[in-house]
Lab assay of single mutants.
Amino acid sequence: MDEEYDVIVLGTGLTECILSGIMSVNGKKVLHMDRNPYYGGESSSITPLEELYKRFQLLEGPPESMGRGRDWNVDLIPKFLMANGQLVKMLLYTEVTRYLDFKVVEGSFVYKGGKIYKVPSTETEALASNLMGMFEKRRFRKFLVFVANFDENDPKTFEGVDPQTTSMRDVYRKFDLGQDVIDFTGHALALYRTDDYLDQPCLETVNRIKLYSESLARYGKSPYLYPLYGLGELPQGFARLSAIYGGTYMLNKPVDDIIMENGKVVGVKSEGEVARCKQLICDPSYIPDRVRKAGQVIRIICILSHPIKNTNDANSCQIIIPQNQVNRKSDIYVCMISYAHNVAAQGKYIAIASTTVETTDPEKEVEPALELLEPIDQKFVAISDLYEPIDDGCESQVFCSCSYDATTHFETTCNDIKDIYKRMAGTAFDFENMKRKQNDVFGEAEQ
């Protein structure tokens, strides 16, 4: 370990593993360490099931009705991949897709007046949907046509809207959309967690709705994908990429100290040895004095023996409960997957309800979601602090990732990755940087 590296990475969460992969592909010498004996950090999948019970201090362990412990891979952080989103792009560019198998999530649902409705995925579904009345549908269709044709580089498509100054509230007004449709559009399509976006320039919202539609167009059922064997497969896929390009991995490796000289990182000390480096990437748990708390998320993992009611017996789905429907500031989400994804025993389902904490009784906040899941065989409640770095790391060369937020997709995580890359490399992130180099010394032969 007593060696000189360009970059040392602490923690094998998804953000850290993707950055480690990119740095290795770009010719950097990388050492990647984790104090845990497993990959994934906060974003790991726990197996066998006995391990999950232990982690949540349920000492009696799983009953026999849960089947074989080894058949379970339970995500600690519930997220899906947008089919046309940035993480899929990263997987394709790096060819990490060859280590993973994905399934399309069967449906996306939205909560309205105590019931759940399928988010329409085709024009026919939209016309048949009970989510809105006849005239509302016509106006909504006009709005969707506007979004589909919108091109930020072609003012002819703006229809009198200025993407940089017109607020989204004004765009909704222009198409005369009612409150329910606005809730549905902002939260189930643009996937905002709160209503803060309404008074911001509309460009980002329009682009988010386009991303949803384009992702949906790829597979038809929903815009989301999920990897077989759980999300823990993602960091491992990128760790393989890093290793192929010469990255060194050490799990179960305690970090005793991060060594600084004149305010700059110069190395990491572990078990009496020092590895030197020019730059350091880590998750917040490794540098508690360089991060601040930015809120909390509650996630309740529920094991069920039945599909969720009114989802047409889907073996995977997402449910969004827009905040307006339950008098909150932030949406509540449910991600459900099952034995069909090799993450649970035969006939079992895993539904994870999550939201940003707003009160001193977080469990009560998630109740509307839990009511949709009854009866629940077993619950595991996790309340996590969200951390963000206190500075950009440019001076110390210590670059810290943000905690995983309450969103049900990876777009915010990818933004964090691109942002850290830019601060480390001094140049904007470009997907081309992730391409495997042809015929290089570490390149794998085609399968």
Rank of each mutant, 00 (worst) to 15 (best):
N26P: 03
L177T: 11
V105S: 06
A83S: 11
V161F: 09
E123H: 13
F150C: 03
L92M: 00
D257G: 12
A190L: 12
T194N: 05
R138L: 10
A406Y: 14
N36D: 10
A126T: 08
V119C: 14
G27S: 12
V181G: 04
V7S: 13
G230W: 14
C317W: 04
K210R: 09
C317K: 05
Y421M: 03
N415H: 11
R138Q: 08
F429G: 12
M134K: 00
K264R: 12
D331E: 01
D440E: 05
T427N: 14
K118P: 04
R139P: 05
P37R: 09
S316L: 14
E444V: 06
T360V: 13
L14K: 01
N130L: 13
D2W: 01
N324H: 04
L81S: 02
V398I: 14
N84S: 11
L10D: 03
I77K: 15
S403F: 07
R423C: 11
K118R: 08
Y111E: 13
Y286H: 07
Q164R: 12
T185R: 00
V96F: 09
Y39N: 00
T407Y: 11
S316H: 00
S45T: 14
V266A: 08
S20T: 05
P48H: 00
N252H: 11
P375T: 00
G113C: 13
E64Q: 07
W72M: 00
I182L: 11
M134T: 07
N342H: 06
S305C: 01
D199C: 15
L280F: 13
L304N: 10
N262D: 10
K112P: 02
K278Q: 07
P163Y: 03
R35K: 12
E388W: 13
R218G: 05
N252M: 14
K293D: 07
G27E: 06
A275T: 08
A382D: 00
L280W: 01
D283Q: 03
I308D: 13
Y286F: 12
A190T: 07
K418A: 09
S108M: 11
H409C: 12
Y5K: 09
E50D: 10
S44M: 02
K89P: 01
G295S: 12
V88A: 11
F442C: 13
E233Y: 15
N433V: 13
T359W: 07
E233G: 11
K418T: 14
V7L: 11
C317S: 07
L370S: 13
A243N: 05
L189P: 02
I46V: 11
Y192S: 07
I8N: 06
I352V: 03
G267D: 00
V119M: 05
T427Q: 01
Y99F: 09
L372G: 03
Y421W: 07
A126W: 05
P223T: 00
L59N: 05
K89Q: 06
L228F: 08
K422P: 10
G295F: 07
E446W: 15
G232S: 07
L58W: 01
P362Q: 02
N26E: 11
D313S: 13
D289A: 11
L372H: 08
K118N: 04
D154C: 14
N439G: 02
Q346W: 13
P78C: 13
E106G: 05
A314S: 07
K156R: 12
N73E: 13
E204G: 09
T166A: 10
G61V: 09
K210Y: 12
S24N: 05
